[in-house]
C-alpha cells in the first residue's frame, strides 16, 4: 500500500500534507500522531471515503474503488458507529457479505472469530462499545483481505479484548497480510507494531522500524514526545 503525496485540505486547514509512505505486507505498521494529526482522514482517503485534494492512495497500484470486490482486498475498521442501531450484528454482516459476493458461511466464521457468536442476533443498538468494536473487526475480516486497515481498534475493548486484538493483528501480519493500525495508545503500539509511521499536523515525522524509533529513549512514549514536540494542536 502506497500513499503518494497524499494531501487533504479543508478550506484553509491542511489536514494531511503530502504524505509519502509505503506500507509493507507481513508486518504491523502503527500509525501514530496527536489528535487532529490527520490519521483518520488518511485512512478515509485510503478507502475513497474522502477525496484527496491532491496525491493518491494505492493498493497494489490501484485505488480502493478500482477493485471489483473491494472488501476482498481491504478490510477496514473505521469509526465503530457505522452500524444501524436497529439491525442485528449478523444482518449487518449479511448485507455486507452480499454487497461483495462473499459466501454467507463466512459471516458466521467471522462472528465466531470476533467472539460475537452469542450476540449476533441482538440489535446493534444494544451493543456495548467493545461489542461494536468486535463487530467492526469481524466486518474488516469478512472478505479475508490481504490488507487490513484499523482505526483505533483498541478503543472500548476490555483487557481480554485488547489482548485478543493484539494477537489477531500479530497473526494477520504473520500470515503475510498488510496491517495498518492507528492508535494513540503508545504502550499498546510498543508491544504490537513492527514499524511506525508518525505524523503531526498532517506531515510525516517518522517512518521507521519500532526499534529504530525507540533506540536511545527510555520508551516509545519518550521517543514520541520528542518527535511530535511542537506539532500538538493547542
Amino acid at each position: 500500500m502506497t500513499l503518494e503525496k497524499l494531501t487533504k485540505r479543508f478550506g484553509a486547514t491542511v489536514a494531511v500534507d503530502g504524505l509519502d509512505v509505503e506500507i509493507r505486507p507481513g508486518r504491523v505498521t502503527g500509525f501514530l500522531g496527536p489528535n487532529g494529526a490527520g490519521k483518520s482522514t488518511t485512512m478515509r482517503m485510503i478507502l475513497d471515503l474522502d477525496r484527496p485534494t491532491s496525491g493518491r492512495a494505492l493498493l497494489d497500484g490501484r485505488s480502493y474503488s478500482a477493485y471489483e470486490w473491494p472488501l476482498r482486498h481491504v478490510g477496514a475498521l473505521l469509526e465503530a458507529g457505522a452500524v444501524h442501531p436497529g439491525r442485528t450484528g449478523r444482518n449487518h454482516l449479511l448485507a455486507m457479505a452480499r454487497s461483495n459476493a462473499i459466501p454467507v458461511r463466512r459471516v458466521d466464521e467471522v462472528l465466531e472469530l470476533a467472539g460475537l457468536g452469542g450476540s449476533a442476533r441482538k440489535r446493534a443498538g444494544a451493543y456495548s462499545m467493545g461489542m461494536r468494536q468486535r463487530l467492526g473487526i469481524a466486518g474488516a475480516l469478512l472478505g479475508d483481505p490481504p490488507v487490513v486497515v484499523l482505526d483505533e481498534p483498541v478503543n472500548g475493548l476490555d483487557p481480554d479484548g485488547v489482548r485478543w486484538i493484539r494477537g489477531l493483528m500479530r497473526g494477520l501480519a504473520a500470515e503475510g497480510r498488510t496491517v495498518f493500525v492507528s492508535s494513540h495508545l503508545l504502550s499498546e503500539m510498543q508491544v504490537t507494531a513492527d514499524h511506525l509511521i508518525v505524523i503531526g499536523r498532517g506531515r510525516l515525522l517518522a517512518d521507521a522500524p519500532l526499534a529504530e524509533i525507540v533506540a536511545g529513549h527510555a520508551s516509545l512514549e519518550d521517543a514520541y514526545y520528542q518527535l511530535t514536540d511542537g506539532s500538538v494542536l493547542s
Binding site: 475513497d48 473491494p70 472488501l71 452500524v83
Partner: peptide, 13 residues
C-alpha cells in the same frame, strides 16, 4: 446513523 460510510466502503461506486 452514519451507515453511509459503511455502505460506501462496501460499494464505493
Amino acid at each position: 446513523t452514519g451507515t453511509i460510510r459503511s455502505s460506501l466502503t462496501w460499494v464505493p461506486a
